[in-house]
Every structure is written in C-alpha cells, then in structure tokens.
Write a protein that binds this DNA or RNA. Structure first.
Length: 453
RNA sequence: GGAGUGGUAGCUCAACUGGUUAGAGCAUCUCACUGUCACUGAGAAGGUUGCGGGUUCGAGUCCCGUCCAUUCCGCCA
C-alpha cells in the first residue's frame, strides 16, 4: 500500500471524513479490554485514536504498545460526540517505529501531576524532559524571541557578524576565562564578543549584531548563572548618547514581546499562567543615586553605593513597577570605576560612566554603554586600572588608531530574558542543555557509559 | 570562594524522643472490562535508606569523614 503524506495532528479538524496518516508519540493508553483508546501527540497537538478487537492485527499490535512509543497510524477522521474536540481517528494501520521502555526514568511534567522530578535528574534525561508541553512551548517562544531580535536588527540597518569564540587573549578581566589548547599554544573561550563587535564599527559596518555562545569560568551557584550562555550583542555607530542605545534596545524588546504575544500569548497564559505585557511608551530611567534613595526609603539595606545586591535588585523592580507600571527600568549613572574601562566617562562628571544596566522584573538582563572611541582617553582609562597597554590590549587598541566612529552597544543574556518572560525559577530550565560549574556534557558522558555495557 | 538545606522504591515524599517485617501516592507489570478521556476494579513486583567508618543490645534516625544535589551570598548577562 502506498504511504500517505503525514498530516499534523493540529490540522485534523480540516480532514473529517478522510483517511489520513499521523506520526507521533503515544501519550496515554486506555485499554478497555476489547477497545483501546490511544492518545497520540505530535508537536502540533494531541488526538484520540481507537483500536477495536475486531481488527485482529491492529488490536494485537496495540496491546504491545507502551506509553511514549513512536507510532505511525493511518486511519479515518470520524466525528465523535463523546470526545471533547468532536472527532477521533479509527485506526486502519498501526506501525510501531520505536517502542519505548518502561517505566520512564523521570516524570514528564503534565497537568494533574504533582510529582515533578527534581531539575537535576530531569536535565540528565533532558530529551525526555523536553517532551512536556511546557518545554515544547518554551522552545517555541525561545525561537520567536531569537528570530525577533535578529529581524529587528536586520530591519534597522545592522549587519550580522560572527565574532570568534576561540581567541588569543582574554576579552575582559582575564580572571574568569576558560583556557583551551590551540595546537601548541594557549587560547581562550570568548567571554564576550565585545572587542570584535567594536572592530565592526571601526570597519564601517556602522551597525552590527552577534548572537552566539559566550563562556564564563565563574563558579556561580545561583538560579541565574551559566558557564556557557547565549548572548545577543548589538553595537551601533554614530550615536550621540548612550540613550540612543537604550532607545534601540527598548524598541527591540518591545518588538520581540509583541511578536511572542501575538504568536503564543494565549498558550503562555494557559501553560505558564503569565500575561505577557508589551510596555507602552518609554522604559523609565533611574540613576544609581535615586535608586539607593528609594531603597533606603523602603527599608532595604545597602552595603555598596556603587552597585546592587540581588535583594536590592528585586526590591527595585517591585518599587519601579508600582511607581511607573513598567516592568523594565534602565539604571544609569554608575561610577565609572565600577564599569568596564571601555565605557565612556561622563564629561560633566568624570566619575560617572555613560552606561546602563537594564533590569526586567528585578533581574539584570543587559549591560550597555557608549564606548570610548578616542584612543588617548581609552588608553588613559586602561592605565587608570593598571592595565598593560602593550599586553593583551594591544590588538584592541589598534582598532582606534586609524579612525573609529563614536559608538555604543549592549549585550542581552537571552536565557535570562526567557526565564523572566515565562516565569521560570531557574535559568537551567530555560537552556537546552545547560553547562554550569558542576554540569558539563553530563548527557554525553552518560550515553558513552551506557554503550560500554 | 563563603553560608545554609537535603540525599529513603522508576518519580514525588512519609517513617515521633534511636525500637518488630522501612510505608503512601504516581509510574510499571499481570488479570478483568466494547466508549474511555487524570478510565475503573482486583492483584503483583519494586529498597545495600548516597558511600565509608564509629557509638549502641539495637541506627533511615546520633557522631566523624566523604561524595552528590540544591538554595542564598560574592561575581555577572
């Protein structure tokens, strides 16, 4: 018999009365003795299929099925008033593509279950874990988020670059880089595409963006840190102020949220219980000094006048949302000494940097700034911090020797954005296969061990 | 790097001041059931209580060591 083309389960309503073919996974089996109901799901939806004892071959095969097996069914889409969606599939052929072993090593997160497996174990079996409706939706939202950021940049005059991930010198402080062997010499995994995206400005690409992995060798045990994460970086030439950068990022985020809401808003509301809000108007600005005043008024303890503790960040998010109705806030006027040396100083008050952090619901999702493009000032900033101009910085400083436009940019931690958008408690959950100080390629080593047996 | 919490069945958790054979829900397996839809009913199987040592007549429980997980802080996106 000639095989039909596959129909996605979500489109079955348009095929009532027809014989179609579906391929997907066994969700639940309800065996009634002489009639078996098999719920089959694919990425587009779920449908009830029916096997009768009269169809001996089919019935025999159906009896051997296990939950989570992969099957291939042809059958007729029939109206059925007993079923919530109004139709079901009468099975005409049933093939098992892949039989799943039982029981499953973890519980797949679903409605009506309260024994959700611990995250650590779920990550060990991530390929099973990702089958849940919640995680499928998360992956869809993540895709739309990335595509929206990218498209916004393309639509606004940016060129996409792919800065090297393996580099010869540490791009930032130097303390938190992973060292790798590069033939017979040392190399490093990039902590940020910062220097190379600035090179794009010196190359007259005018506006550039870079989406890709960055690596941080920090033993951070929190719900918001990874050793490898995906950074969305933008650098804009010919700006007048770092506020041009803020505006650009603000519009980029609003566009992304609009797209996600249009495509998945209802589902996100249903599955995560979160109403995606697209902010109206501009995100508020708040100076560090003003923020500290507000925090003091609210009785939140502060140990540092130049930066915020996580507790302060959360409190600041709540205070600002109450005052302005906006979940986002640009925090500005940080002390220059506490920021990267390549941030431009504020001429009116050289102790302050022309940079910002963007917070969403109490979490830092971005650092941005106007960069120092004037070679002498840049050298002075570096020297001020005891950095060697002839050392690792030499290549970077050369970008400014043959003329470089004024510019500024920012970097977004995409997993953090996803975490806040969907209300996850940990960034590990929003990462396909998270790497942390304690978790590195565990999945792959597990497979290697099982093959040896 | 610092501080806290935890590790008991495939999964989620119980087990009082140390005391009989370490329990439950879900999942799994077997049987029954022709309309279920979180199917139902009956039954079964499933444990080196993370690992090593110690105290005790007796340790899941107390002590020491060790490994693992997790949360918070520091650092950052």
């Amino acid at each position: 018999m000639e095989l039909l083309e596959r129909t996605h389960i979500g489109e079955l309503a348009q095929h009532i009365g027809q014989v179609i073919r579906i391929r997907g996974r066994v969700d639940t089996i309800r065996d009634q003795g002489k009639i078996i109901f098999i719920m089959v799901r694919d990425r587009s939806g779920i449908v009830q299929t029916v096997a009768w004892f009269g169809d001996e071959e089919i019935f025999k095969t159906a009896k051997t099925l296990t939950s989570e097996s992969v099957i291939d069914i042809t059958g007729e889409v029939k109206e059925a008033k007993q079923v919530a969606c109004g139709y079901e599939i009468g099975i005409k052929t049933l093939n098992i593509d892949s039989l799943a072993q039982t029981p499953l090593p973890i519980a797949i997160e679903a409605e009506h279950t309260d024994n959700v497996t611990a995250l650590d174990k779920r990550l060990d079996y991530r390929w099973v874990d990702l089958r849940s409706r919640r995680n499928q939706l998360m992956m869809d939202v993540a895709t739309t988020m990335g595509a929206s950021f990218r498209q916004y940049c393309v639509d606004n005059g940016c060129v996409e670059i792919n800065a090297p991930r393996v580099i010869s010198a540490a791009s930032e402080s130097g303390a938190n880089v992973f060292e790798v062997k590069y033939f017979d010499r040392k190399a490093y995994l990039a902590q940020s595409p910062q220097f190379h995206k600035q090179m794009g400005i010196a190359s007259d690409l005018e506006r550039v963006f870079n989406m890709g992995p960055v690596f941080r060798a920090e033993k951070s045990f929190t719900t918001r840190h990874l050793t490898e994460y995906t950074s969305f970086d933008v650098e804009l030439g010919y700006i007048d102020s770092y506020k041009d950068v803020c505006k650009y990022e603000q519009e980029m985020i609003k566009t992304m949220l609009t797209n996600v809401k249009a495509k998945y808003g209802d589902k996100v509301k249903e599955v995560f219980g979160i109403d995606i809000k697209v902010p109206e108007g501009d995100f508020p600005y708040l100076s560090v000094a003003e923020a500290k005043e507000k925090l003091a008024k609210a009785g939140v303890e502060s140990k540092d006048t130049g930066d915020f503790s996580p507790e302060e960040e959360r409190a600041m998010g709540e205070i600002m949302e109450k005052e302005t109705g906006c979940e986002f806030v640009f925090v500005i006027d940080y002390p220059h000494a506490r920021r990267a040396f390549y941030h431009m100083k504020n001429e009116e008050n050289p102790k302050l940097a022309l940079g910002y952090d963007l917070f969403w619901k109490g979490l830092e999702i971005t650092t941005g700034a106007q960069r120092e493009h004037r070679l002498e000032e840049l050298k002075a900033n570096a020297t001020e911090r005891g950095m060697e101009l002839d050392g690792q910085l030499k290549d970077y400083l050369e970008y400014f020797e043959y003329g470089c436009p004024p510019h500024g940019g920012f970097a977004i931690g995409t997993e953090r954005v996803l975490m806040k958008m969907l209300g996850f408690g940990s960034i590990l959950e929003t990462t396909y296969l998270p790497n942390t100080p304690n978790r590195l390629g565990k999945l792959l080593s597990k497979i290697a061990v099982e093959k040896k047996k």
